[in-house]
Write a protein that binds this DNA or RNA. Structure first.
Lengths: 124, 124
DNA sequence: CAATATTATTTAACATGTGAATTAAATATT
DNA sequence: AATATTTAATTCACATGTTAAATAATATTG
């Protein structure tokens, strides 16, 4: 999404990093695997992205006390600030797309894409 | 497309390389920029992909005599063989997707996606 | 409890995406 | 014709996609 990338460029993050922040803001601290799935990222990609984002101070990483294999990930206030600063612009961009397509087309698109989703229980 | 990648894996090529071969087979020899556009690849990506494919013997590269800036690209018989060997399987995979969605959904999807295409003259 | 199997994550290697800077050849200007 | 401009490709640097192999911690078995 060019307009999304453009919006995020001055925050210095990518679309994928934006999705990670959004998921963390919505669901709170969570394990790498959960986060990867929710942000539609492959596990190895998330590993690298998380390290990058930790270096940028956008998230913190820690091991789960009960299961030290589990990497727990948490958003920082600096990461949350990006969400707070950009959330409205992101909503506007989505609204624009919706408007360009028209409501009916937009909803039809979401329905059809859901049919193609491999995680969907439609027996694909 | 996991099923497409799986099909191409034993031919030793990627989805992008497959698209390059398909475009060359359909339109014949052409310049890098034309090929990139038709194969939905960014120019810098095509540059690298073309070098890889030349090393594999799937395509040949040469300079246009009239304009030596222009990189002309041509499929080899070895490249054409991959097309010949896999074209039917590829059609089956597409037919499967079409069948999973149903004809109406499939056509609706193509129409809606065309609306989102930045190259489309719909005044987006 | 020791050996084995499973699970969560990481690392590696290669390919592509992306935007900016660079090069080289052709075209336009003066 | 010499300089400036434009155009076609390439190169760079960094980020992610993708698959397979490797680690490390936990759970399971004998």
């Amino acid at each position: 999404m060019p307009p999304i990338r453009e919006m995020l460029a001055d925050a210095g993050i990518t679309e994928q990093q934006w999705r990670v922040l959004r998921v963390l803001a919505e669901y709170g601290p969570q394990s790498s695997s959960t986060l990867a799935s929710r942000a539609s990222l492959l596990f190895p990609s998330l590993t690298r992205i998380a390290q990058t984002m930790q270096n940028k101070g956008l998230i913190t990483l820690s091991r789960d006390a009960d299961d030290r294999r589990r990497q727990m990930i948490c958003i920082t206030s600096s990461g949350q600030k990006i969400i707070d600063d950009k959330a409205n612009q992101a909503l506007e961009i989505v609204a624009d797309v919706k408007h360009r397509l028209g409501k009916d087309n937009y909803e039809a698109l979401l329905d059809i894409l859901a049919l193609l989703d491999p995680d969907n229980p439609e027996g694909n």
